[in-house]
Design a protein around this nucleic acid. Structure first.
Length: 383
DNA sequence: CGAATTTGACCCGCGC
DNA sequence: GCGCGGGTCAAATTCG
């Protein structure tokens, strides 16, 4: 028992180090671990009725095991950190490409006609030196791109902040428990039986911060009662624990991608957007009719994994527009969908590529796993 | 006894 | 204008 507590403590510290992105902890000098280890070993020896000469041997064995375990956790921690850095870099690069493409698209579809554009370019040519050097050309291109990127980012952030106040993120997951373990403290303030679903819908309010505006609705799916639909609304106005942060990160990223896509391609009650494939193969992003039709809702479907037994996505639907489909290696490519050869890729490659290419998918998986594992194993390290 | 949950009443927006 | 349905409030109840 005490040994378990010691191990739990180790994992907590490891998680803390991982989340805070601090430098590697000197494990042997961590006083809380030392104390817990010491007390657990002492407790083990006190509770044991075997002769004293075996106690030391057992303690040494125990210590050795713990040290080995510690090294493994440490290695895993380092691997995860480097993986996270890599993923973040890929994500930033992809986001830049997407923003650039969006900006270009916006410019090309601006009300100004081609004549004006030609006039402008002629004027620019008159003002500029006739034949700029290659370096000059590259530099101006760089500057223009930077300015475009900054403008696009500002526009996107403003739109995101405005839309976030109303937009919702819905997570569908298979769970025995009606509550997803998302790490936040929620206070139930209502329950209703909605039309078309015999299962009641529960309303929760975030109870962690003072007057935190975040709310969530939890309801079991009418078609499949093993599926829990959790809908989040609003942004937290306080710091979050690691477990909650992963979910918040997921929903925020999903929303951001959704909003950036939906601004260009939403029509009627059906939302089709360019980034649906970012969540595949394990998550689909679909529009489900919600109680408030004016509020855009994105749904992360985490039930596909178990439903399809991790087969290659049926999730990539032809209903979803995919102007910038991602290849499995994270490079944008022009294609009409998934090529047949890609379908033949090994499942492991597909899954690992998807996880590598998309940090939000990683976070979504993390949240889904933690919800499945539940409270009983909260001491496990995060993905 | 305080905190959390339940539950019926009420409010409000939307469609007809 | 009216009814319907989703969302919220707050008193009552339950739980630790």
């Amino acid at each position: 028992m005490e040994g378990k507590i010691a191990l739990k403590k180790l994992l907590e510290v490891q998680e803390k180090a991982y989340v805070n992105d601090t430098d590697a902890i000197n494990w042997t000098e961590e006083p809380s671990i030392k104390n817990t280890l010491g007390s657990s070993l002492l407790s083990l020896s006190l509770n044991n009725l075997e002769p004293p000469q075996n106690h030391e041997q057992q303690n040494l064995n125990q210590l050795g095991l713990l040290q080995i375990e510690l090294e493994e956790v440490k290695k895993e921690n380092q691997n995860l950190r480097s993986m996270l850095n890599e993923i973040s870099e890929h994500y930033a690069a992809l986001q830049n490409q997407l923003l650039l493409a969006m900006q270009q698209k916006k410019l090309s579809s601006s009300p100004r006609n081609n004549e004006d554009m030609q006039k402008d370019s002629q004027q620019n040519n008159m003002e500029k030196p006739a034949l700029p050097s290659c370096r000059q050309f590259l530099n101006t291109g760089k500057i223009n791109n930077r300015v475009i990127l900054q403008e696009a980012k500002i526009v996107e952030e403003q739109a995101f902040e405005a839309s976030c106040k109303k937009a919702r993120v819905s997570v569908r997951a298979r769970s025995e428990s009606s509550l997803m373990g998302d790490g936040c403290q929620w206070r139930k303030y209502g329950q209703k039986i909605s039309k078309g679903n015999p299962c009641p819908r529960a309303y929760y309010r975030c109870n962690m911060g003072t007057a935190c505006p975040v709310r969530k609705q939890v309801q079991r799916c009418a078609e499949d009662e093993s599926v829990v639909i959790t809908t989040y609304e609003g942004n937290h106005n306080h710091s979050l624990p690691p477990a909650a942060r992963s979910m918040a990160c997921t929903t925020s990223a999903a929303l951001k991608m959704f909003l950036s896509g939906s601004t260009t391609s939403s029509h009627g009650s059906t939302y089709s957007y360019s980034n649906s494939d970012l969540f595949s193969p394990l998550c689909t992003s679909t529009y489900y009719p919600s109680a408030a039709p004016s509020c855009p809702t994105i749904t992360l479907d985490l039930t596909q994994t178990s439903k399809n037994n991790m087969k290659f996505p049926s999730a990539i639907s032809s209903n979803h527009l995919q102007p910038f489909p991602l290849s499995l290696h994270g490079q944008p490519q022009q294609s009409e969908g998934i090529l047949p050869s890609e379908k033949n890729l090994a499942l492991v490659d597909v899954v690992s590529a998807a996880i590598t290419n998309d940090p939000s998918l990683k976070a979504a998986l993390e949240a889904a796993v933690s919800s499945i594992i539940g409270d009983s194993q909260k001491s496990l390290p995060t993905l």
